[in-house]
């Protein structure tokens, strides 16, 4: 069986699902909070301001005393994990096992799931971008991929001496959060092969909370927080964060592939 047919099956069975209709709701929280927090008349913000706000995360903390969950950011990240959780598990049982047998090798099958994860996370982020764009148009914001200084400082609570260039803004506001979501979902998928799925979900959610509490490039969720980037007054270099996210992604894929190649699939049927 051609590898592309397996991928086509994954995209059909794993992506064309009713649940993805709820993805705009994940970004709706951030968009509504942005509108509420705009402090003065005349300030409308740009499309990129809304994107940066949706993936804001939180400022580094001295201690956990002042911890308050940034609900918009957490909703997107945990929602992504929730949506991506069960496709691998569903395909490990019943008809899915037939596909594994016919695919001729386990690694190809697992690689297809990894590619599906990368593409589906892309779909989630694209839906998010469309949601923020719609909000920008409705509320009179400029459709621009650069941030505005007023919105950055007053709404996002970040600091930058000059507006970000398009490249910087897309890197920090779109690419890094996207790669981080892919890496965290991939980690969850790999952990599902070692532990129960609920433990994998809890581990990844805990990792996200730890990333909120500790500002360190080695902790995966920091890449998805625009407020942590040195470009917006934080302390973490986007280059380092990108390298860490890529490293985590590759390691997760390798660990998952090795584990999947050796595991007993019959226990899933039981």
């Amino acid at each position: 069986m051609s590898w592309f047919r397996i991928l086509a099956h994954d995209l059909r069975a794993g992506t064309l699902r009713k649940r993805y209709l709820f993805v705009p709701l994940l970004f709706l929280v951030g968009c509504v909070l942005f509108q509420i927090r705009i402090p003065m008349q005349g300030l409308t913000g740009s499309w990129m301001d809304r994107i940066l706000f949706c993936f804001n995360g939180m400022h580094p903390l001295e201690s956990a005393n002042g911890f308050e969950l940034p609900i918009g950011w957490f909703f997107i990240m945990a929602g992504g994990l929730y949506f991506q959780l069960d496709h691998l598990l569903e395909d490990l049982t019943e008809a899915g096992q037939q596909v594994i047998v016919r695919s001729g090798g386990r690694w190809g099958w697992f690689l297809s799931k990894c590619v599906w994860n990368v593409l589906t996370c892309g779909v989630i982020v694209c839906i998010g971008l469309i949601t923020t764009l719609v909000f920008s148009v409705i509320f009179g914001g400029t459709v621009s991929l650069t941030n505005t200084m007023d919105a950055t400082m007053l709404v996002l609570g970040a600091y930058s001496r000059t507006p970000l260039t398009v490249l910087q803004a897309v890197w920090v506001g779109v690419l890094l959060p996207y790669l981080t979501i892919v890496a965290v979902c991939q980690l969850q998928m790999t952990l599902c092969l070692f532990f129960r799925p609920i433990i994998s979900f809890l581990s990844c959610v805990s990792l996200l909370v730890v990333s909120l509490l500790i500002s360190h490039p080695g902790i995966l969720g920091n890449g998805a927080q625009t407020l942590r980037s040195v470009l917006l007054g934080g302390t973490l270099e986007p280059g380092t964060l990108t390298a860490v996210v890529f490293g985590a992604l590759v390691l997760s894929v390798l660990a998952g592939a090795i584990r999947f190649g050796r595991m007993d699939l019959l226990r899933y049927e039981e």
């Binding site: 609900i71 929602g79 979900f201």
Partner: peptide, 17 residues
């Protein structure tokens, strides 16, 4: 929901919403 794990996460999703 077919998978037990998705059922377990239902309260979390609702309370987060």
């Amino acid at each position: 929901l077919r998978h037990g794990v998705m059922v377990i996460l239902t309260p979390y999703a609702i309370l987060m919403a």
